[in-house]
Amino acid sequence: MKIGNSPEGTASTVKAEQRPAARKADATATTDAARSAAATPAPSAQVAISSAAKMAASAAGSDDGSFDAAKVDRIAKAISEGKFTVNANAIADKLVANAQELVSARGNKH
């Protein structure tokens, strides 16, 4: 038995008395946080996009065939129906090929 502990359980009554006060403090903190979130400050900076950046963005967004919405829909449907399968061999082959490209590109630079 530790010094100062009595078998009557006075410590548990103290804890029980402190709980409502702690809940009230938590509720006050939550209310204060909600108030500060509601008072969102106005933006402090303005951003302007240059014409070169606009041209680069439009060129990047051009339809170069890298995004196939129909394919995405087919894959999403197969996943939702539980019919989508992963070809682990094809993924492994691509990873190895990409790694070989990176290693050979690094070797050519040095």
Rank of each mutant, 00 (worst) to 15 (best):
S104K: 14
A90K: 14
V96I: 14
D64G: 01
V14E: 11
A22S: 07
A56F: 09
G65A: 02
S44E: 14
A56Q: 09
K15E: 07
P43F: 10
P43H: 12
S51H: 09
S44Q: 14
Q46Y: 06
A70M: 04
G9Y: 04
A56N: 06
M1W: 09
S6C: 06
V103A: 14
N98G: 09
Q46K: 14
S66V: 01
A60N: 08
A52N: 12
I3A: 09
A21G: 15
A88E: 15
A97N: 04
K77A: 13
A25L: 12
P7V: 04
V47S: 04
S51G: 03
A34N: 12
P41H: 03
D93F: 09
A48W: 12
V103D: 10
A70T: 05
A97C: 01
A56S: 08
K15G: 04
I91N: 02
A21L: 09
A99L: 06
A11N: 07
I75V: 15
A22F: 03
S62D: 09
L102I: 08
S62V: 00
A59P: 00
G82A: 03
V72E: 11
A42M: 09
D32H: 07
N87F: 04
V14H: 08
G4Q: 07
R74N: 13
A52D: 14
S104N: 14
A34K: 12
S80Q: 14
A78F: 06
P41R: 01
A57D: 05
K15Q: 10
A22P: 00
E81M: 12
Q46F: 07
D32V: 08
A78Q: 10
S44Y: 03
V86G: 04
N98T: 03
A21H: 12
P41S: 02
A48D: 13
T30G: 05
A76T: 10
F67K: 01
A21E: 14
R106G: 11
A88P: 00
V96Y: 08
K54W: 08
N5M: 06
S51Q: 14
A88Y: 09
K24S: 11
T85W: 02
T85A: 13
T28I: 07
I79V: 15
G82Y: 13
A56D: 03
I75Y: 11
Q46A: 14
A69Q: 11
A60F: 02
T30Y: 08
V86S: 06
F84T: 00
A33M: 10
A37R: 15
V103F: 12
D93W: 02
H110Q: 08
A99E: 15
R74W: 03
A92T: 13
E101I: 10
K2R: 11
N98V: 05
I91D: 03
F67T: 01
D63S: 01
V72Y: 13
A29C: 01
D64Q: 01
A57V: 02
G4K: 08
V72I: 08
A37S: 11
R19V: 10
D32W: 04
Q18A: 12
S6T: 10
A99N: 14
S58Q: 13
S66G: 02
E17N: 11
A33R: 10
K109E: 09
G107C: 00
A97P: 02
G4W: 01
S50E: 00
D63P: 01
K109H: 06
G4M: 04
A60R: 03
